[in-house]
Simulated assay, not measured.
Amino acid sequence: MKNTGNTILITGGSSGFGREYARAWHDAGNTVIVAARSADELEETAKGRENLHAMPLDVADAAAVEQFAKEIVERFPDLNVVMNNAGIMPYEDISGARDLSDAEKVIAINVLGPIRLTDALIDHLKARDDAVLINVTSGLAYVPMPKAATYSATKAAIHSYTLSLRKLMEGQVEVIELVPPGVQTELTPGQSTREGYMPLDEFIEETLALFAQNPTPEEILVERVKGFRFAERDGTVKENLDMLAKR
């Protein structure tokens, strides 16, 4: 992935990772479009930056994704980087029968959202030079958090989907998986100040350095996430699962 001169779309751009990547990549000399459900928060992300643009989008709405894709290609024909970052992580108890509406919402946003947006834009990306697609997964794709079982499963699904996409897009679109550890954002209530989670600014700084490598790694892995990413190889899945079950 080249460092400058891109036109980049980031979903989930109203806070957390999305907001910080949007600002950093804009300031590095890229045109950036941020998308999310909250128009007000998107405008806050873009405030004061001439080439940072806000476009509301609900990735759980199939028709909205299709219309959004048409509009963004028309407005930004040089679009060459798409970052599927939007996601939600509600806690749940799967040990008994329950209302599955929250689980269905997680799947709609975390799995169907990136699949639909990728499908809507992949032909455009294939026709662009220096095309990149970035899927944000999680260390929990490799070792699940029991009280966020559906979230963890959705990230495992996107990891698998990314592997398939990378293979099929060889020589056409660079496909990158960003694998965060627990980071101090508001993904879950109180997480932005939770002890033991990686400070957001440190995560952004370390990952931007990895994105800037030539060639860019297929997987963007900060040091803190490698224990989860390689747990199966290292025989530490049970140990990590027991630790996550206590959180």
Rank of each mutant, 00 (worst) to 15 (best):
E44M: 12
T45W: 04
A46Y: 03
K47C: 15
K47R: 14
K47H: 14
G48K: 08
G48Y: 05
R49A: 02
E50I: 03
H53C: 11
H53N: 11
H53M: 15
A54T: 07
M55G: 09
L57I: 11
L57Y: 07
A60P: 01
D61C: 05
A63L: 02
A64P: 02
V65I: 09
V65H: 05
E66C: 12
E66Y: 12
E66G: 10
E71N: 14
I72L: 03
I72A: 00
I72Q: 01
I72K: 00
V73E: 06
V73Q: 11
R75Q: 14
R75S: 15
F76H: 06
D78F: 02
V82G: 15
V82F: 09
N84M: 12
N84C: 09
N84R: 09
N85L: 06
A86K: 13
A86P: 14
G87D: 13
G87Y: 07
G87E: 07
I88E: 01
I88V: 09
M89A: 00
P90Y: 03
Y91H: 13
E92V: 01
D93W: 05
I94H: 06
S95C: 02
G96H: 10
D99G: 11
L100F: 04
A103L: 08
A103S: 12
E104A: 08
K105P: 07
I107Q: 10
I107L: 12
I109Q: 08
I109T: 12
I109F: 15
N110G: 01
V111M: 07
G113T: 01
G113D: 00
